[in-house]
Computed example of a mutant assay.
Amino acid sequence: MVRDFPTGNYRFIPAVFQYSSGAAADSGFEVERVRFDKLLPLAEGFAQAAKYIQAAGRPLTSFCACELRSPAAFTEDGFRIFNQHYVKTLAEWKIFDGTVNPVARSNVCPEIDPPSEPSFYAFSFTRPGAGAIPSFVIAGGAELRGGSGTYPERIVRYNDLSPDAMKEKVRFTVGSMEERLGEFGLGWKDTTAVQAYTVHDFHPVIVDELVRRGAMRSGLTWHFARPPVVDLEFEMDCRRVARETAI
Rank of each mutant, 00 (worst) to 15 (best):
M1E: 00
V2D: 01
T7P: 00
T7E: 09
G8V: 08
N9I: 01
Y10Q: 05
Y10E: 03
F12R: 05
I13G: 03
I13E: 09
A15P: 00
V16W: 01
V16Q: 11
S20H: 05
A23P: 04
A25L: 10
D26V: 06
S27V: 13
V31A: 12
E32A: 14
R33V: 10
R33T: 14
R35N: 10
R35S: 15
L42V: 12
L42G: 04
E44S: 14
G45L: 08
A47S: 15
A50N: 11
A55K: 15
A55S: 15
A56H: 14
T61S: 15
S62F: 02
C64N: 08
A65P: 11
C66K: 11
E67G: 15
L68Y: 13
R69H: 06
P71N: 02
A72G: 08
E76L: 12
E76P: 00
R80W: 05
R80F: 12
Q84D: 02
Y86Q: 02
Y86N: 00
E92D: 14
E92S: 13
D97W: 06
G98P: 06
G98W: 06
N101C: 13
N101R: 03
V103K: 07
V103Q: 08
V103S: 10
A104H: 09
A104L: 05
P110N: 05
E111A: 15
E111C: 03
I112L: 11
P115T: 01
E117G: 02
S119F: 03
F120Y: 14
Y121A: 12
S124W: 15
T126C: 11
T126W: 03
G129Y: 10
A130R: 12
A130T: 14
G131A: 11
I133D: 09
F136P: 06
V137T: 08
A139K: 11
G141E: 00
A142N: 08
A142Y: 07
G147H: 10
P152G: 09
V156K: 09
R157T: 02
R157I: 00
Y158P: 05
Y158V: 03
Y158I: 04
D160I: 06
D160T: 05
M166W: 04
K167R: 15
E168P: 02
V170P: 07
F172T: 06
T173I: 07
V174S: 09
S176E: 02
S176Q: 07
L181E: 01
E183H: 07
E183Y: 07
G185R: 00
G185V: 03
K189L: 06
K189S: 14
T192H: 04
T192D: 14
A193Q: 11
T198F: 11
I206T: 06
L210C: 13
R212N: 11
G214N: 08
A215F: 03
G219K: 08
H223M: 10
A225F: 07
A225M: 05
V230D: 01
E235N: 08
E235C: 10
M236E: 01
D237F: 07
E244N: 08
E244Y: 12
T245H: 11
I247T: 07
